[in-house]
Design a protein around this nucleic acid. Structure first.
Length: 138
DNA sequence: GCCAACGTTGGC
DNA sequence: GCCAACGTTGGC
């Protein structure tokens, strides 16, 4: 299983919005960046991800799961843009902020720390474990 | 609200 | 195919 990070501005689409979508989840549409799209193409159903709030909060707030693999983005009008569907799994016991990630030596290579502009990022397995530890999620 | 970093576009 | 100009993102 692979791990990912999905970034969203919470005043546009927040963790609570995703929770409200329930078990069927939500299409992660609107991505118009090749690297981010390629990451989504690589996702498999059942992969886990973090939902990160940019701008407001700047913290990872919850765990999501891929429920549908890449398909054309219904909002794009061009089949080259694809996206996956994700659903909320559970909120982190404690959000992990960008500052904390930067301060944690084991996360120094994390994409979030080094290339904060990429909106859909891979997360290494050991990085995932560190985030879980910091958040208090077992 | 500013600005640095990055990605994309378009002229040549 | 290069590269300058431009637009967008996101941290500060």
């Amino acid at each position: 299983m692979a791990y990912w990070l999905f970034k969203s501005e919470p005043d546009v689409f927040s963790w609570d919005d995703l929770v409200a979508k329930g078990e069927t989840g939500e299409e992660w549409d609107g991505v118009r960046n090749y690297q981010a799209r390629n990451n989504m193409r690589a996702m498999k159903t059942g992969d886990r991800g973090l939902l990160y709030h940019s701008n407001i909060g700047k913290e990872a707030v919850g765990i999501v799961e891929v429920v549908a693999e890449a398909h054309p983005d219904s909002t794009a009008g061009d089949p080259k843009w694809e996206c996956v569907d994700i659903k909320a799994v559970r909120k982190l016991p404690r959000a992990v902020s960008l500052d904390e990630a930067k301060a944690e030596p084991r996360l120094k290579d994390m994409v979030l720390v080094n290339n904060s502009r990429l909106s859909v990022q891979p997360v290494a397995e050991d990085e995932w474990a560190v985030i879980m530890e910091l958040s208090g999620a077992e």
